[in-house]
Design a protein around this nucleic acid. Sequence first.
DNA 1: TACAACAGTTGTATCACAGCATCATATGTA
DNA 2: TACATATGATGCTGTGATACAACTGTTGTA
Lengths: 153, 153
Amino acid sequence: MSAFDETTDATVRASRALLGVVARSVAAALEEVSLPQLRVLVLLAATGPQRSGELAERSGVHPSTFSRTADRMVAGGWIRRVDNPASRREVLVTLTPAGRELVAGIIERRRSEIAGILARVPRRQRAVVLDGMRIFSAAAGEPAAADLLILGV
Amino acid sequence: MSAFDETTDATVRASRALLGVVARSVAAALEEVSLPQLRVLVLLAATGPQRSGELAERSGVHPSTFSRTADRMVAGGWIRRVDNPASRREVLVTLTPAGRELVAGIIERRRSEIAGILARVPRRQRAVVLDGMRIFSAAAGEPAAADLLILGV
DNA sequence: TACAACAGTTGTATCACAGCATCATATGTA
DNA sequence: TACATATGATGCTGTGATACAACTGTTGTA
């Protein structure tokens, strides 16, 4: 096998390992909210309070669909609807502390699990991982937010 | 920041990039089947034909729920129910060619996207990525199949 | 001021998912 | 053979996601 294919294999394998980490980090949250709801929470955590229609747009759902989802999320205590002082026909959606913590918990858990894995790497090899990950990230660039949202992350 | 934290940061960033790749690879499939259905397809592709109850168990759903999902998947042309010659009260579920191709397409796309990223890495740095990914994967171990299934992969 | 455009919600309908209870059939055993 | 058990399918019910159409209230403008 070529060196290139070997590198691809290794990266695919690493992606599986990282996917496992991400999946576990999201699993707990998915027992509290649905995937469409988690997408909304992630959007709000990333971009701050937003108009209802804006969130519908970014979530890729019909405004009426979002309105219903927002109802459930308000009932669940994850978000709040607040009046927009600038325009009374617009509604701003914000995270409640619970909503913010749900998202923060996912991110923390992901980071701590990754740290746990790296802690098992012999110190002298960690620099290699650091370089390898940096080089890969640089080549990959930042993923589109819309792509990440597919999986709720 | 400590070297350890820097490595963690870099790995978290790489995980985002890889997650983007995975999400895109799954996105097309999710326009054809639902997430619970994709889980079934992935299970079948990984482990071969299985009993209905077995699949329900591994999917983490009630047998009756799976039965209904299987109905839809049969109607969609993704799976087939075949008689188990060994026991007439058991039903084996198998992939159709379409089902097999759907899963294969996800895996191929993921691999080819990763290869595309690595192609942008200068050749002399690829060895670093190879080593880094191998070291990380070794420390992480294989993720539990159940964890991967959460995100349908 | 009158009216068009806009933002969001609500009425209505459909579909997937989920589980409990129940049933029909097949299998194994006393 | 009779009966308990196993396996999967169905009847029923409830929740969530989804969209279209219609409606309410707001804003901007002719």
